[in-house]
Design a protein around this nucleic acid. Sequence first.
DNA 1: CCTCCATCCTGTGGGC
DNA 2: TGCCCACAGGATGGAG
Length: 274
Amino acid sequence: MPELPEVETVRRYLAPVVEGRRFVDVEVRHPRTSRRNTNPADVADRLRGRVVERLDRHGKFLLGHLDSEMTWVTHLGMSGRVVIARPGDAEAIHTHFVARTDDGAEVRLVDPRTFGFVAVFTPEELVSQLNLGRDALSNLPRTPQLAAALDGRTAPIKSLLLDQRIIAGLGNIYADEVLHLARVRPTRPGGSLSPVEMAKLRRSIKPLLEAGIAAGGTSLNDLAYLLPDGQAGDYLDRLRVYGREGQPCRKCGTAIERVVVGGRSSFFCPRCQV
DNA sequence: CCTCCATCCTGTGGGC
DNA sequence: TGCCCACAGGATGGAG
């Protein structure tokens, strides 16, 4: 569920809590949460006693660089939420991971669907486990590189925007938003975009992600993504097409339509998007 | 390599 | 009210 803007919002909350702090206690409470480590017990063992030197983000992954050459990796999946609390604070149901800092802060992962995970990887494991393209916000490929990646591709452009190996960070909401701003239908084959469309698509990405971050992300409801302090992100009100089937396009007033592309709901304006 | 599809889960909301 | 189904912000692996 959380896409780049939501993960970046979490990172900004979490960085001051963990950077320079040592994890004095780590608990993995659900076996699925540590499944990405070959030896699941490694997650707690490699994290306990370590200092987080810097909290980074690549696409939708949170990357905590430890004082041990290893990287603490968190992915929120569809329903993951980071909660920053103090020991003893009431715990939400589905709290599957808890790490306490030497400062007395608790970092919790709440994840009903358990699609998210926490891992601690060696540099080699990190490379093999995270197969990511360049970050959509901080390292977006230039138009020619993007065009080269999409050249000859027959898959729908929407599906290719969701492919984290091409660009890392877009998810179902922001992919639809980007396509609306770029005036391209989600069903168009990736390789069919003209150079002008390609440039427009590329230009649409950063402003939308930045607007999402400025709003604290998109909270569709209060059971999935919320800010780490429990507040809702405000970008929902500003969505151009996502979830707005039957409602008027904010540009031209035409009713927004819904189609399924690559198994994912996709929303578009049949008039604005070609 | 590419494309498409099912799968991993829990919870909610709509239709009947 | 209760039941059943569709659907949900993601990533991956297998079939073809």
